[in-house]
């Protein structure tokens, strides 16, 4: 199903903004038919990578190889003061689509993203979610070979985002195109992507199918970033866990104490203090109170040999700064 020759490839790409190296030695390939999500904390260099891949920023080192036209949809969905349809038509004019095809293609794109009902509305009257929808339609309408989307769901509340995500899922899927989406939220990445790239501090630190990365994160830093917030260190190896791996069990092998309990909608998030470290889990009600001793067993988690001291890891890779627990 996936075309063997990549539409876009970068090798050892290095990009500077001013004197600072924002992208360091990034190599990646994007093939027709796949949707790739790029995930990373604020300031990791995601938008810069997009600009460099699109050719809007020069590479300071390495190279970018493009087979076909690359379109980038910027993060801010600024539209011209005219109707929604004319905005999409205008984008097609910029792209160089013949006049006779523009209206039809614009309507098609609006339909694909479930925004056809907005076609006649003045763009200035749209809500935030509707603007994002039209912005996305504009990018889809030009039918680029490679589509780069910079946080297409930024700044939307959960409900609007979920509905846009659902419509984007079918609209972005195309066998002829490679799509790279910068996302801010892990949930968006799981929903959209065939492949996940993780960027930390200007470097690409992981690449693979989302499920696989989650099961076998290649390094401690990637694991921490993907929500492995619990950590036990027995001196020989480090065990990292997600809340789902930690199960309260009266006959479990590990003993600890509840340090904190934070109520959630359907249960309680518990912070557990053990001799070898700290674990987090979500327990259903009734849950143990802070101070109570508990026993747990681990139902998964990943192990790394332990040159890492726990405190050093905590300091270097603070967990859970992104997404929902």
């Amino acid at each position: 199903m996936i075309d063997p020759s990549p539409l876009l490839r970068c090798e050892h790409l290095t990009v500077r903004r001013g004197r600072r190296e924002v992208i360091r030695d990034v190599s990646a390939e994007f093939r027709a038919g796949e949707i790739v999500a790029l995930l990373g904390p604020n300031g990791a260099g995601k938008s810069t990578l997009l600009d460099a891949l699109a050719g809007a920023l020069p590479a300071a080192g390495g190279r970018v190889e493009r087979h076909g036209r690359v379109a980038i949809a910027l993060q801010s969905p600024d539209l011209a003061r005219r109707s929604v349809l004319s905005n999409v038509v205008l984008a097609l004019a910029w792209w160089g689509v013949p006049r006779s095809e523009r209206a039809t293609r614009a309507r098609e794109a609006l339909r694909a993203i479930a925004a056809e009902h907005l076609a006649a509305r003045p763009a200035a009257t749209l809500s935030g979610g509707e603007r994002r929808r039209v912005h996305l339609a504009r990018a889809i309408a030009v039918r680029p070979d490679v589509l780069l989307l910079d946080e297409p769901f930024a700044g939307l509340d959960a409900e609007v985002r979920a509905s846009l995500l659902e419509d984007a899922l079918s609209a972005l899927r195309s066998s002829a195109r490679a799509t790279l989406v910068v996302v801010h939220d892990r949930a968006e990445a799981w929903a959209l992507a065939d492949r996940l790239l993780i960027m930390l501090d200007g470097r690409l630190v992981a690449s693979g199918p989302p499920r696989e990365l989650l099961e076998r994160p290649p390094s401690v830093e990637v694991a921490r970033f993907l929500g492995f917030d619990g950590m036990l260190d027995d001196g020989r190896e480090v065990v990292l866990t997600r809340p789902v791996h930690v199960v309260l069990d009266a006959r479990g092998p590990l003993a600890g104490r509840v340090a904190r309990a934070i109520p959630l909608e359907d249960g309680v998030r518990l912070e557990l203090e053990l001799d070898q470290g700290r674990l987090y889990t979500v327990a259903s009600l009734p849950a143990p109170q802070p101070g109570e001793p508990v026993r747990v067993r681990l139902d998964g988690g990943v192990r790394f040999p332990a040159p890492h001291r726990a405190e050093a890891v905590e300091r270097q890779f603070p967990a859970g700064n992104l997404g929902t627990p």
Binding site: A54, A56, R69, A71, I72, A73, L74, Q75, S76, P77, D78, L79, A80, L90, A91, W94, W95, G96, R138, V142
Partner: peptide, 11 residues
Amino acid sequence: PGLLSQARLLG
């Protein structure tokens, strides 16, 4: 600023 940059980027 996004409007003009977007127009530039779309060619």
